Computed example of a mutant assay.
Amino acid sequence: MTEHATTRTASFVPIIDLTDRNTESGRRIIADAIHRACETSGFFGITGHGIPAELVTRMCATTREFFLLPDTEKDLVAHRPGVSGFRRAGGSTAHSLDRKTPPDLCEVFSAHVTGDLSQDERDRLGNYWASWKLANIWPSRPTGFESTWRAYMRALTDLSADLMRLFALALGLDEDFFDDKFDRHVSSVTVNYYYPQRVPPLPGQLRRGAHTDWGTLTILHQDTDIGGLQIRLPSGEWRDVPMIPGGFIVNIGDLTALWTAGRWRSTLHRVVNPAAGSDASRLSIPFFYLPNHDAPLHPIADSTASAAPDPSGISTAGQWISRKMQKTFAADPENFESAD
C-alpha cells in the first residue's frame, strides 16, 4: 500500500484498499484514511477486504431467489411476535428522524447473530423490546438459504471486528479499545429487495426514506446503481454512491458519532426510486455491526464518565437503537413486533 491508497470519487466517498491491513505500516495508513473519511462524509468504500467473491455472489443469488417465490410461500417465514424473518413492508425509515413519509418501497428479510440463542438468553438482552431478542426463522427454499446466510454473517462479523480495531487506531486509541463493547454483539443482516415499481410512488415515497443508521458501522453490498443509494453533502446536495465491483460501502452510524462526540459524521442517506418507466429491481445487503446491548453511550474521550444525559432516560446502545426501531414501525403496528 502507498500513501495514495485512497482515491476520492465524484460521489464524495473515498475508496480504501484494505489489502495491507496485516502489516503495521499498512494499518496506520488505512486508519488515517478511515479517519479522514469519517470526519467528512462518514462513508467510504473498501476493496481488498478478504470476503470471498463466491460467498457474496451466492448470498445475492440465493436471497433474490427467495424474494421471487410466491407470496404465500414467503409468508410461511414472515416476521411475527417472537421471530425475525420476511417482511412485506420495510417500515418508514424517515420516521426514525420524526419525518412523516409514506411507507418505504421494499420487501425485507432479516436475521440476527443472537437469533439462535435460547429464549432465556435472548430475554436478557435488554429489558425492552428489541429485534435482536427475536428467534431467526429460515425458509426451506431455496436450498442453502440458511447455510449461506450464516456463512455471510460470520464473514462480515470478522471483517467488522477488524474495522473497529482500525477505527480505534484512527482515533488514537489502543486497537483493542472496542473489543469489550462487542464481545456480546447483537448484529444483524438485512436484505432489502427493491421490487420493480409498476405503480407510481406516492408523493415523497422512496425505496428508503432519508435516515441515518442507528448503530456503529454498516457494511453494504449493492448489486446495481439503478434506483440506488444517495448521501447528503453538508451543502444539502444529494450525491449518488456508486456500487463498487468486488467491494463494499461502509458507513458509520449514530452510535459512533455519539462515541466521538460528533467528530465523526453519521450522514443522512436514502435510496431513490428508479427513473419513471424503469422496471428494474435492486438488492442491497447491509450488515449492521451493533455493540453489546448494554454498551454505554458516553463519549470515548472520557471512558470513566457516566453515560450522556438524555431526557428520555436512554443511556445504552440498545436503548438508543430500540427507540429508533419503534419510531420506524410506529405507523405499522402489524410489523412493529418484528421491526429490525
Rank of each mutant, 00 (worst) to 15 (best):
T256Q: 11
S278K: 05
H211V: 10
P70F: 13
G227C: 06
H185T: 09
E337A: 07
W214S: 13
K327H: 07
H293P: 03
V186Y: 09
D183S: 14
G26I: 05
V199G: 03
D71I: 07
R323D: 07
D294A: 04
L169I: 15
V241H: 03
K133Q: 12
R141H: 13
A301T: 14
C106W: 00
F248T: 08
V56G: 11
F109I: 01
A161Y: 13
Q319T: 00
S92G: 08
G246E: 01
V199T: 15
S188N: 15
R239A: 06
R58E: 13
G91C: 08
P234K: 01
T19S: 12
G126C: 04
A155F: 08
D213C: 02
G253Q: 06
W320D: 00
G91Y: 03
W259I: 11
D116V: 00
R154D: 15
A151T: 09
E107I: 01
K74F: 04
A89T: 14
T328P: 00
T9C: 05
M153Y: 12
A155Y: 09
H4M: 02
E24W: 03
P139K: 06
A111T: 05
R208E: 05
Q119Y: 07
G318Q: 00
H211P: 07
A111S: 08
L159H: 10
I252L: 11
S41W: 03
H211N: 09
T148M: 11
T216G: 03
F177C: 07
S281D: 14
R58K: 14
D20F: 01
L105W: 00
M243S: 04
R28Q: 11
N22I: 02
S110R: 01
R99A: 13
R270T: 14
L217K: 10
I285L: 15
S315Y: 00
H112C: 02
W264Q: 08
L76Q: 12
T157C: 08
T114R: 01
A261I: 05
G82A: 10
R239S: 06
T93W: 05
P14E: 01
P70H: 12
F329H: 06
D302M: 07
L229S: 13
I29E: 02
A130H: 01
F44V: 03
T6F: 02
R21Y: 04
A31T: 10
A257F: 04
L290R: 14
L283R: 10
